Amino acid sequence: MSSASSSSHPPPSPGNPSAASSYPSTGIRDLAWNPFADVEDDDAEAENHALPAPVEEGPVEETLICVPGAIVHLIDPNYSIELGAGDFSLVRLRQGDNTLTVLAVVGDGLVRWPLVRDETVVKLDHSHYFFSLHVPPNFLGDDDGNDLLNYGLTFTSKTQESLLRELDCLLQAYSSFSVQEIAVKGEDQAATASASASAMIQVLNGSVELEVTPAEGMGENKEMLKERSTAYWTTLAPDVENYSSTAAKLVAKGSGKLIKGILWCGDVTANRIKQGEDTLKGKVTPCSKPAEISKNTKKRMKRLALVALI
């Protein structure tokens, strides 16, 4: 048996170089494979291979801008509801180099909503902005076909021109921002109808906000500004909702880039001025009957409360 094995595999001959090359010599050290051999050969190289475990950085909250003297309303065609007043801030939540979200925050933070690149933000004049937020239909378990929340923001803009320009740049970076204008039709007829109608036109022009500083607007003139803001956003509510709905449909169809090309439909007629006048008079008259909140408005307020928890 051993002779057969020997004849099959003859040992290499020292005088035969080709035979020796066919059977390379193998030392016992070569048989002991060490997966860390390269590292052990060089201590400096070993340090390069010993990488520290990654440290998970927690979310960081940073304020991008803070604009004092703001009043925010939930826009509604029946009666726009004041939600809060104070400083308006854009707050960014980031983790490392990644931005998680940007929040619009008013006052003590109880009123807040996220900014989204595909959601509409419109500047109507030097003091008024509105923000649209699409809420999922089943957010409250009921789908009534009305899945938009619109926030109206009023600023006391005196001494804050540069700060508001900075705000515009940030809104352009984090939302679908545009600037539109309101066209007041029937202004002459409404102005001659009553003194309160003339006051309503001043409300739509934003002339008072332009002359009030944040300290004055949050102090002695606070109630007056709240009343005017309520009348302003109630008067413009139908136009705001039409604009927001059109923009949302374009986004759903994948035409988000066309949002800024939508023409603002804010042609405020004498009838609408009369509606705003009634809102203004109903708010400031001591013996007036308080405005009733519609069922639809109550649903919006419920959605609003849940959005604030985000």
Rank of each mutant, 00 (worst) to 15 (best):
F155R: 03
L263V: 02
F139P: 02
S89R: 15
A305K: 14
G69H: 01
G96I: 03
F177P: 13
E161T: 09
V102S: 11
D143F: 03
L167F: 12
F139T: 05
L124S: 13
V251Y: 03
S13N: 13
A32D: 12
V67I: 11
E292V: 11
L115S: 11
A231H: 04
K222E: 14
V116E: 15
S196Y: 03
A32E: 12
V60K: 11
H134D: 14
Y174C: 08
Y174F: 13
V91N: 11
P54C: 09
Q275L: 14
L31F: 06
P214I: 00
I71K: 08
L171K: 01
S294G: 06
N296M: 03
V91D: 01
V116R: 10
R29Y: 09
L64Y: 04
E216G: 02
A50T: 08
E161N: 12
P136S: 05
K257Q: 13
E45M: 12
L124K: 04
A231L: 05
E40D: 13
D267P: 00
L204S: 05
V307I: 13
S13A: 13
K226Q: 10
S80P: 05
V307L: 12
S132G: 13
R228N: 04
P238N: 07
E40K: 14
L153H: 02
D147A: 11
E47G: 00
E227T: 07
T213L: 02
L124W: 06
I81T: 08
A20I: 07
W264S: 15
A70T: 04
L306M: 15
Q202L: 08
R94V: 00
A291P: 02
P54K: 04
A231Q: 08
P12A: 15
D76H: 14
V208F: 14
V179D: 11
I65L: 04
I71E: 07
E209T: 03
A308V: 00
T246V: 00
Q202Y: 00
S3W: 05
D41L: 15
S245H: 03
L74K: 07
S8P: 00
K289W: 05
N16I: 00
E277G: 01
N78K: 03
N146S: 10
K123F: 06
L74I: 04
Q172L: 08
L140I: 07
